[in-house]
Structures are given as structure tokens and as C-alpha cells.
Design a binder for these strands. Sequence first.
RNA 1: CGGGGCGUAGCGUAGUCCGGUUAGCGCGCCUGCUUUGGGAGCAGGAGGUCGCAGGUUCGAAUCCUGCCGCCCCGACCA
Length: 561
Amino acid sequence: MRISKSFIPTLKEVPADAVIPSHILMLRSGMIRMLSAGIYSFLPLGYKVIKKISEIINEEMTAIGGQEFHLPALNPREIWDETGRIEDFGDTMFHLKNRDYVLAPTHEEVMTFHAKGAMKSYKDMPQIWYQIQTKFRNEARPRSGIIRGRQFLMKDAYSFDSSWEGLDESYTKHYQAYQNIFDRCGIKYFVVGASSGAMGGSKSEEFMVKSDAGEDTVAYCNSCGYAANVEVAQSVVEPNERSSESKEVYEISTPNIHSIDELCEFLKIDERETAKSRVYIFDEKPILVLMSGNDEVNGTKLESILGGEVRPAHPEELVEITGAEAGSIGPIGFKERILADNRLKDGNNLYSGANKTDYHIGGIDLKRDVEKIEYFDLRTIESGEECARCGEPLDVFKAIELGHIFKLGTKYSEAMGATFLNENGKANPIIMGSYGIGVDRVLACFIEQNYDEKGILWKGPLKPFDIQLLGLNMKKEIVINESNEVYELLKSEGYDVLFDDRRDAQAGFKFNDAELIGIPLQVIIGEKNVKEGLIEIKNRITGERLIIGKHLLLDQLKEIG
RNA sequence: CGGGGCGUAGCGUAGUCCGGUUAGCGCGCCUGCUUUGGGAGCAGGAGGUCGCAGGUUCGAAUCCUGCCGCCCCGACCA
């Protein structure tokens, strides 16, 4: 493709609104442009890569028996009412104003709708159906360029099985297909156990990419490979030691002390001698959650223990419930349910709030003084804690979710009445799985993992072109002729070539553009070399230059690769 | 949704606190000449509802009010 006839609007300067590398580079290299917050257009160069990713996904899905669909983004509200997910999604779902339609954020409902009545017999299954299409979510805060948008390209697959063993098989197939897909794309990733959240179902795993731009936090053990979203991650934390003697409970005046750090500073004590209180509302009733020191409550763990959603109590509610403001709340005298983290188990001589603003209580013995107390693993784990599997220190870092596979079970088939007849002629709900990949995130993640100060470093099958051909002075007849000739030659050999044939651009300008776009191989036609029958090949990644006789060009390119 | 920042030409920005020429600069764009292996030089030129609306004032990019948009942190996130 000739650049002079293409639309590849590169930018020399960094757009003010872009912050993370992939966003900056996609804008600068002319792959995307923003239309509105979280809504991006793919320009030809960007879309070309998207299609390459899609093609890899298609091949791997076909390999496990997947069949591609094209589904409506516009959905009647009823099918979402059937599964109750209008409420689950809440404000995250887009609703149309002038007709009772929603914009689909995912496609369990539509796929189940089609499976219903079509999968009549156990003989009709297994099936794997998938699509690669735009999804819509009314994200409260889009961010990080393409990584979190209000509309995004997602591949989602659904498996339909007549038995739980069949689901296991479909799940395993997808797991393997996903590994193939990400490996082929050249993405460095890892797999974590995850919470299935509002999707429902039992087992789920996420394919993650380590990145500061990520929105998930994961724990990873470099030693044994244990990996889990911090929502569910566990570590070994021994309960605090119990002193041999319990002091009496006593009240302390602690004016303007609101945090554990302030309390420790004020009383000259260690944070492990304190019990932090958090009040949550579950099922319209308050629950006190006690944590050791500054340990953070893990909301996901709390919700799975309680079996439902919780929310933190508002400041006004705190006063109403406990009689004290935040910072002075504690277990002594708290009349509702009390949960405590395992680390506090049977602790004594603890300091906590007095349920009286600006007062704390010391000498608390949880065993003696707090009758109804239930202990659970409620902590959010931290970097450096011991791996629950092998005991080595865990690494905790941010990551981007690229893929997510779920064993859905019968949540959707039951809700929508999608049943089949089994061997005994009995109607059973179809057993489903759901498997997603953020296609445009694959692009962003690849760039996050492959760039330098000059631009993108493409390699492998995602590269938008094989070779960038630079004609350095396209006003000189000799360079024009030579580069046109080389262009035709490379094309005829099957290379996909981006030909910088711009007449007015300076050499340095072309070099910088080529490095920004980042095609792995550059073939450079300069006047001096042409006159000596020479041609230059440059490796974008290593910067290595080779000047060779023109007749050796094809051999040399084959050798490189 | 809470907190913070920003909005001036296609891009990046100065000016805004403290109101007062014709809103300035760099890049890009157009014309011509020169240059041609690391983001060219000279000359000439085009391009602005200063986010929108209202208000204060003799006078508003600048002050006030409301709204909209974008970015960052947080909350939320199948």
C-alpha cells in the first residue's frame, strides 16, 4: 500500500488526553480516533490489526467446533427481563429512549433464545456458538483509551451441553483454544481463578495481562504459579498471638483520632493491637466487620460469606446504628451481627472504637467481651504475604482482563425455559458455558507489551504489514524507479508492503514515521545506495542495518524471516 | 456518582490571577524557490463562534451564574 494514497494520519506530538502507552501510540500511529468518551473509531491501520486478531480467533474457534453467528446488538427488553439481568446490569446497560430496546452488553440471552427450541434433544448437543461483535456498556468512567470503552469489540462464545461432563469438556476446549489464541497473538498472559460476579455459574477463570493500566488486581506466586484475582485470593496469615493475661476493658479519650494510624501514633501501640471496624448494610440490617489494624475488607469475600450484596453504611447511618461517628466504632456494645477476620481470632488486649465519638476502648478480649462473633477469611491480601499453596511470597499487581471463561450451568436456560429431552425423555435445562475475549483489548495489550520510546514494535502475526519500504528522496528519478521496482517485486513475492512513497517528506520524517508505526522490517531505498546497486534492510526492533546487493534482497528477507 | 484538573485554529500550547490594540507561538496545511539518509530553509498565505448559554461592564478569552465536554484519582465494573 502506498502511503501517499492511504489514510494513516500519524501525529508527531502526544495528544493531551492520552496517558497510557497503548492509547498514545494508537492515536499517534493513526490506528484510532476518539469520537466521544470511551467511543473510538478504528482507522484503516487499526482495523487491519483487529481483523488479524479476529482471524486468529476464528481459526482457533473453528478448530474446537465453534460456529460463528452474527447477532443483533439491539435487543428487546423482554429477554433481559426473563433472566433478571436488566436489574443486575442497572445503569451499566444502555436503554433506548423511543422504544423498549436495550443495547446488548453481552449475549447470553440472545444465544439462549436461539438455543431454546432448537436444542430439543440431547442428540443435538454439544454445540459451540460464537460471535465477534460490538458490545455496549454505559461505563460510568471510560478510561485508558480502548481498554475501557462504552462500546468495544468482544468475541463471545457459548457452549450448550446435555451433561455436566460435557460442560467440563467444552470448558477445557475453550481453555486450550484461548491459550492458542493468546500465544499466537504474542501476548504474555497468565490465568487466574476468578469470581464469577453477575454472570452466575460455578467455575470461572480469567486470562490476564500484567499492566499498570489494569483495573483488576491479582495475586501471583512466581514459585508455584498460583494466581488469583484479589477478590478471591488467599494467603497464609497466622492469627495474632493471644497474650497470656487479659486486661480489664477501659475507656480512653481520643479526641480527633479517626484512623488506625492516628490511634497507633496517639497510644504508641502497634496496629496489630487494634481492631478496625467497618459497618456494612446487608439485607437492610447493619453488620460490623472487624479487621486487624489496617487490613482491608475484601468485599467479594464478604458477599460470598453472606450470600448477597452488601454496601457500606453511610455516615449518617453510622451514627444512628452505633451512636458514634466513623473512627470511633467498635464491637463493645454493638448489638447487631459481628464478623471478624481470622487474623483477630480470639485476640485480647485489643484497642477499638467505643461507639462514642472521640473515645476508644482498650483491653478488649474478643473471646470474653464479644459473645456473638463469627470468624472468616475477610482480608484483602497484600504483596509479600505467603502463598497459600507453597508458602513463597506472593506478588500482587494490576492486570488487564483479556479473556474470561465461565461454567454458567443452567442459570440462563432455566430462566428462559431452554430445555431438552434426555435419554429418558425427561426435560432438563441446557447446561451452558460462556467464554469472552476483549478483541480490541488484545490490540491494546499487545502494544502495552511491545513498544519503545520511538513507537510500536510489531512482531508475529498481528503486524499490520510485513515490510515498510522507504523511498528516501522521491523527487529523484533514480529513487522513484528503484523503489517502485522493489515495491512490485516484494508484492509479487507475497509480502504485504507499506510503501512510503511520499514525494515531499524528508528522510528523517519518514524514518520517524516508520519507527512510530513499527513494522518489523524496513527496506530503505536511498540515492547513494541505488547508484551502487545496494539496498538497505533495517530491523525495527534491534535497529540493526544490513546493506546488501540488490540481487540478494529476497534471499536476505527470507533468511530474516 | 464523589474529588481534582482542563476546554483558545487539525495537533500541542501562551494569554485568564490583575478586563482594555488586530488573541500570540510551535507543528501541520496552501503557493513559489531551494534542500534531500534522521521530524529542512527562505518568502508569501489560509485557517479562531477563545466549549455553550446567560449576566456584570463603556469594553469580556479574562469577572459572575448555569450547562456541556474531555482527562486523572476514587466508587462501580459481565
